[in-house]
Design a protein around this nucleic acid. Sequence first.
DNA 1: ATAACTGCAAACGGTTTGCAAGTCT
DNA 2: AGACTTGCAAACCGTTTGCAGTTAT
Lengths: 128, 128
Amino acid sequence: MPELVLPPRTRMTASRRAVVDAIGAHEGAFTVVEIFDVAREAHPALGLATAYRTVELLRRTGSVHPLGGGSYVRCRPDHHHHLVCVTCGGVEETELCAAPSDAELRKRHGFRAQGHELDIYGVCKRCA
Amino acid sequence: MPELVLPPRTRMTASRRAVVDAIGAHEGAFTVVEIFDVAREAHPALGLATAYRTVELLRRTGSVHPLGGGSYVRCRPDHHHHLVCVTCGGVEETELCAAPSDAELRKRHGFRAQGHELDIYGVCKRCA
DNA sequence: ATAACTGCAAACGGTTTGCAAGTCT
DNA sequence: AGACTTGCAAACCGTTTGCAGTTAT
């Protein structure tokens, strides 16, 4: 289970607890607004700006990863991808990640995604 | 070479030509604003809204694919991904696609992406 | 002739920011 | 006390839309 960690010198307050717990309980990709709606049930005074700020803190520690289009996923320790150089054959790892959203896969294919593997082909820095 | 095709009942005008040509000449991922800037050199009267509308037309025919975060790629005919069911082992294809942007890979890793392969694992519709 | 298309400017919606009040240590 | 955090509302910015004039077929 990946941990959801805040950066140093930050406090775990009731507002942040609500946001972190909502993310921890969520399956698959999420948007800040989705998390906000859930977190507000536990902590009705929560403001949307605080939800955005808390997700940003989690992103800084690498606890969550933006997929683009406003959606995020919790990062898993074993979740990384490969940059394969077509010139020298070298393989490098990257934590950069993007994949079709769970919602889109569900809607278009009835498919419930659990994880993915991504290999990117191109020319590495040394060969460029 | 993937074709850039407009939907039926649409006209190929000078404005659209400029946008389509700019996309055709572009390598890798692009944003609408980037394409707009290039297309406007060929057709200075071009409006930003028309650039957005034209990219949307190309998306409808599957000629380009949104990656999220506002960036797009031209779709290639051989560019599709796999949905692998962890229950029955079946493999389904999808045209849904997302990958880290070329710009991000370049900035973070000095890597020049050319293509990628993506396998998504989960539970298919029949097994759900 | 007429349905499609255009640029413009205003509207929109998600995200960020400034700030004065409140809270944790 | 003092740094950190909050919710609010205003600002921001990329994108979409309404519209009156123009163009392709």
